Simulated assay, not measured.
Amino acid sequence: MGAVPTLGVVAIDCPDPVALAEFYRAVLDWGAPDVSDDGHWVTLPNPAGGAGIAFQRVPDYRPPAWPSADNPQQMHLDLEVTDMEAAHARVLDLGAKLLDDKPKGFRVYADPVGHPFCLCAC
């Protein structure tokens, strides 16, 4: 490894790492997550070899409020799609909640524990 780091995972706080990993596994159509022995840390490896997503259990988790400065989103994922209507129906069926469909080229959703994410057809 050199002095320049590479991105390994993006870690997301949540109340149930296994459940949230399963949601994103279904959304992204990735393989099975790697679950720690105690279930407090779950990694969803990227099958293409890039950065994955990790989920960590946080006691007394409070979801972000979008849009709000009181409990800000702190981060979100942009997921690129080529068929917005099909992707929209799919994520809603998997448990996402639509937050905003007004912006041109993308839509904002909340995952099952409240983290915002966008479907982008930009």
Rank of each mutant, 00 (worst) to 15 (best):
P63G: 08
V81I: 07
R25V: 06
V113F: 06
K102L: 00
A51N: 02
D29C: 11
D29Y: 09
H88Q: 12
W30I: 11
A89M: 04
A51K: 06
G39S: 11
F106Y: 14
K102M: 03
R25T: 13
H40K: 13
R107N: 03
Y109S: 09
H88C: 11
L44N: 01
T43C: 08
A96K: 15
M75A: 14
A48N: 08
A51P: 05
D83M: 14
N71V: 10
L28M: 03
V58F: 14
H115Y: 01
V81E: 03
R62P: 02
P112D: 00
P63Q: 10
Y24F: 14
A51C: 03
L94Q: 04
A65I: 09
G95P: 03
N71K: 10
K97R: 14
L44K: 06
P112Q: 07
A65D: 05
G39Y: 09
D93I: 14
E22F: 01
P17T: 04
H40N: 15
G50Q: 02
W30F: 15
P33C: 15
P112V: 03
D70R: 13
P33R: 12
H88M: 14
V91E: 02
W30R: 08
D34H: 15
D38W: 07
H76P: 03
R57A: 01
W66Q: 05
M75W: 09
G39V: 08
V108R: 09
P67W: 15
N71P: 02
R90L: 06
G31L: 09
G52K: 05
H115S: 02
A89Y: 04
D100W: 12
A65W: 08
S36D: 11
T82S: 12
G105A: 14
P17D: 02
D16T: 03
F55P: 00
N71I: 13
A96D: 01
D101Q: 05
N71R: 14
A32Y: 06
W30Q: 03
D78T: 10
L79A: 05
Q56F: 10
R107M: 03
A32I: 07
R57H: 03
V18S: 12
D38M: 02
M84P: 04
A26Y: 06
L94D: 00
R90E: 11
H115K: 01
G52P: 03
R62K: 11
Y61F: 13
R62Y: 07
A26F: 13
I53Y: 02
I53Q: 00
